[in-house]
Amino acid sequence: MKARHLIPVLAIAVGAILPLAPASANSGGAEPLVHQDWSFDGPFGTYDKASLQRGLKIYREVCAGCHSLKRVYFRNLEGIGYNEEQIKAIASQYTVQDGPNDEGEMFDRPAKPSDYIPSPFPNDNAAKSANNGALPPDLSLITKAREDGANYVFSLLTGFEAAPHGVEMSETQHWNKYFPGHKISMPPPLSPGQVSYADDGSPETLEQYAKDISHFLTWAADPYMEERKRTGVKVILFLLVFAGIMLGLKKKTWADLH
């Protein structure tokens, strides 16, 4: 390569790399997130069905007390490995309001697979008033709605500690080293042994719980990830071959130019 080509190439390279430089954005002094190895990482990553099912268990037994998961239908649970009968059984444990019936009354009935997972509070104001004025966010999209979502949820759930000396905290605040601003209204939700993993014998530790629920919420936000990545492999391979053919054809076409 000649020197006169070098300068533009260099300029373009600098231009391309510059935006990738780590942003030193200061998000309220929060620590860098803990990074876990997730089975869904990478171009061939898949979800771990057992972890997803444990995650659902944690959601139902712990998170669902305050957080909704309002964009997930019961029928979607097929994606975490349940069959139709199991989904019906899970749904029937919930009550949803339906109606109005022929008399114009709203009535309660057991949930069906075609229902959304019911939310713990009828609306945001009710949720706020039950939680000291803080709104527990809906979790359906939480891992997409936070930068590096799965690691964020994991870090947050394992990041509670005693507030440093001299920091003033109100009654309803808790110190979390990964939360922007550190003062979070959510009390530490998980403790070891809290949720039974008797079914599959996984360790009942805080880390395992945090990992499973982060895994589950990643699925909830991105249920088509596996299909997306599978399709991607096919598309990229197809285009690689296509590009090869076109390159050959282009060279062949240009070869007869004198």
Binding site: V241, F242, I245, M246, G248, L249, A255, D256
Partner: peptide
Amino acid sequence: NGQHDDGETRRGFMQMLAGAF
């Protein structure tokens, strides 16, 4: 049109292949 028929047919085949893709 300086090229021989051989190259022409191979190019024709590649064009068809590219069209199919």
